[in-house]
Design a binder for these strands. Sequence first.
DNA 1: ATATCGATTATCT
DNA 2: GATAATCGATATG
Length: 221
Amino acid sequence: MGYSLMQMTSLGHVTSLKAEFFNRDPSRVARALLGKLLVRKMPRGILAGRIVETEAYLGKGDAAAHAAAGRTARNAVLFGPPGHAYVYFIYGNHYCLNVSCLPDGEPGGVLFRALEPVAGIEQMAGARGIELAKEIDLTKISSLKNISSGPGRMAEALEITRERDNGKSLINTRSDLWIVDDGHRVRRVTVTPRIGIVKSAEQPLRYFIAGNPFVSGRRVH
DNA sequence: ATATCGATTATCT
DNA sequence: GATAATCGATATG
């Protein structure tokens, strides 16, 4: 079943993802999520970004995963049903968004690392504390990249917090945090080791759209 | 352009 | 008490 966000944004026809999409290995979900839209419904309007970079976090055998040491109050969502938001707070400063994968009882998730801004760009910039008045030109890639390239940045741009969003369904049409398919097709994907971890750092579980300028870090190929 | 470092707190040992 | 799936500022080439 499809929906139209045309009235509020420049987005066209979009399709909700099914729970089955997330009911599989996080590495496959991470790859499949590239090119989808993450949509935030705010009172002032729709915010949306295209998913351009993800990382898979597995279960017990993956020492870098929050689920590695077993279920706790913090990581419980990772052990729950697929397609739900796992939001954690890190370094005393930042929130990061994941989506749960695999069936209820089996832990696993995908970390969203970067978005290409698509709709509500000025509001996202505002949420990031970027003052629009002066030298900031939101038609420039360098300015847009500052909005949502990096897990902490994109969470801030969409005003995602643990208190507000942890445990939410990302596949429910009425959820204010939603993942949809607008038909965009990804040409080529690059796979590298994950960023910012020490344990299990050698595994190639980071996925991004090859050549996309909104991927975090500086190496895009 | 790349490297290093401090911030700041929930969570777990 | 130590750590952390980060970011932004500052220093240096």
